[in-house]
Write a protein that binds this DNA or RNA. Structure first.
Lengths: 254, 254
DNA sequence: TAGTGGTCTAGACCACTGT
DNA sequence: CAGTGGTCTAGACCACTAG
C-alpha cells in the first residue's frame, strides 16, 4: 500500500469563516494548535500536504503556509523538505516570555502581595542614566517594592523609569504588576536585556528579605524596551532562592 | 513639503543576484541587516514602502515582505500600519540563543579549558530518566566536567545523555563544547527548558570550585530537545557567581 | 520517480494612520 | 484624503527526500 497512514487533519473538521475579521491563516493556525494541545493531533503524526489542505479548506497555498509557519515558529510543528510537516514529539510548553514576577506568582496561585516602600522622583545615577538613555542627574522615577507570597518576603524589587511615561500610583503598584501597568498605559513591550546572577546578601538585603547576612541571593538586572527601542524600565531585583527561580523555555533560532 | 525625508534605502546600493542559490529574500534581508549593523540605516529612520522597494529591486512584493519580516522577527525593524517600516531605536543586540558556556567564554576571549572528570555509562536515576524520557535504570551517558578560565575554576557541569546518540570522546570533550559536538554529529538543537537558581555550596561543590562551604552558587538545570522533540541532553550545572552570570536578550511574542 | 516543502510572481482588496 | 502595511489568490518552478 502506498499510503498506509491517513492524513490526520481530515478528521479534524477544520473550517474557516470568511465573514470573520480574524485573518484566515490565524483561524487555521488556532484550530491546528488547539488540536495539538488537545491531543487530537498526536506527536509525530504527519499532516497532509499543504496543497491538499489548501484545496480542502478553499484557501490558497500561501495562506495555509502562513498558518503552518506560525506554528513552526512556536515550535509545535516541524517541516522537513521531501518528507512533510509533523507534530513535534514530547513536551514543548510555552516558549520564553518576558515574564513578570507578579504574573508568575499569580499563575502559580500564590496571590502575591506587594509593599511599596519607595515611590518618588530622584536624579538619575550614572548607571540608571546609561540604562535608560536619559541624562545623568535628570529626574527619573524610583520604585522600591517588597514582594511577598504567603506573607513571606520573596523578592526585593528596585526599578527606575524615565519621567513622563506613566503615572505611578502607589495603590496601583500594590494591586498589580509593573508590566501590566505599562501595558494598560499603551506601552508595547518589545524586548529586554537581562542579566541573572547570584551573590551573598548584604546586611541591608538580609534585613529586607528575612535572610541571614551572606545568604545566597538570586539577582536579576533588566532593561526593558518598547517597540520603538526606547528604554522604558530598568530593574534591579533580588530574590530568595529558596522561594523563586527562573524557569523558561528557549527556542533555537533556525 | 510632503516628503521632507528621502528613502534611506535608495543610497544603499541594494542588489540581488538571481543566479545565486541563496534565496532572494535572504539576500535582501542580509543586506538590510548589514546596513543596520553598520549604521548606514540609522535607528528610527523610515524605510521606503515595500512596493517601491520591490520595484526598484525587480522583486515581487511578497518577496520583499519576507525579507523585511525576517528582520522584524529579529527585532531590528518595526512595522506600523499606515506609517511604515522603521529601524528600531537604540541598542538591540542579539536575541536570546541557546547559549553554550564554552562558546560564551570563547566569545569573551577567555580561552576556556575543560577537565573531564567523569565520562561513563550509568543507570538512569529517576530524575534523569524523567528528563530524558528513558526508562529508569536504563543506561545513559554521564559526564562531569570542570570548566576553567584563566586557570581558575568557573563552573562544574554534570550532563546526562541518552545512549547511542553520540560518541563522547574525553579528548573531544576537552577540546570543545558539548553543543558543538552534538551539532557536528548532525543533531539539530531546537529548544530547551531551563531553570536558573542559586544556593549555598555544599562541601563537595565548594571543594570542586575552590569556594568556601555555603558560598553562593549560581545553578542551572537544562533539558535540551532536538527538532523532533526528543530530549538529547540533561544538564545540572553550578557556576561561581563572581565569574559568571547569564546575560541574554528577550523578544516579546507579539 | 513521485511527493514534499521552499521559493517566487503579479496582481488584488482591505484596515489603519496621519494630514 | 493619500499612503502605508496586512491579507489573500492562483498559479509556477525548484530542491530535497524517500522508495
Amino acid at each position: 500500500m502506498p499510503k498506509p497512514d491517513v492524513d490526520p487533519t481530515v478528521s479534524l473538521d477544520l473550517r474557516v469563516d470568511r465573514s470573520s475579521p480574524v485573518p484566515l491563516y490565524f483561524q487555521l493556525s488556532q484550530q491546528l494548535e488547539a488540536a495539538i494541545e488537545h491531543g487530537t493531533l498526536t506527536p509525530g503524526s504527519l499532516l497532509g500536504n499543504e496543497i491538499e489542505l489548501a484545496a480542502r479548506l478553499g484557501l490558497s497555498r500561501p495562506t495555509v503556509r502562513q498558518a503552518i509557519q506560525s506554528l513552526v515558529d512556536k515550535g509545535l510543528l516541524v517541516r522537513r523538505r521531501g518528507v512533510g510537516t509533523q507534530v513535534v514529539h514530547s513536551q514543548v510548553k510555552r516558549p520564553l516570555e518576558l515574564s513578570s514576577l507578579y504574573d508568575d506568582l499569580e499563575a502559580a496561585g500564590q496571590r502575591p502581595a506587594t509593599k511599596v516602600l519607595v515611590n518618588t522622583m530622584v536624579p538619575a545615577s550614572p548607571a540608571v542614566a546609561a540604562a535608560l538613555g536619559v541624562t545623568e542627574g535628570g529626574d527619573v522615577h524610583r520604585i522600591e517594592r517588597l514582594r511577598l507570597a504567603h506573607g513571606e518576603p520573596m523578592a526585593y524589587l528596585i526599578n527606575h523609569l524615565p519621567p513622563g511615561l506613566l503615572d505611578l500610583g502607589t495603590d496601583q503598584l500594590e494591586a498589580t504588576g509593573l508590566y501590566r501597568l505599562m501595558r494598560s498605559a499603551g506601552i508595547t513591550l518589545h524586548s529586554a536585556r537581562q542579566s541573572i546572577g547570584a551573590r551573598g546578601a548584604t546586611a541591608a538585603e538580609a534585613e529586607r528579605l528575612a535572610e541571614a547576612e551572606g545568604a545566597p541571593l538570586l539577582t536579576m538586572q533588566r532593561t526593558t524596551f518598547d517597540d520603538t527601542g526606547r528604554a522604558v524600565e530598568f530593574g534591579d531585583h533580588t530574590y530568595r532562592p529558596s522561594r523563586y527561580s527562573f524557569e523558561f523555555q528557549l527556542l533555537v533560532r533556525p
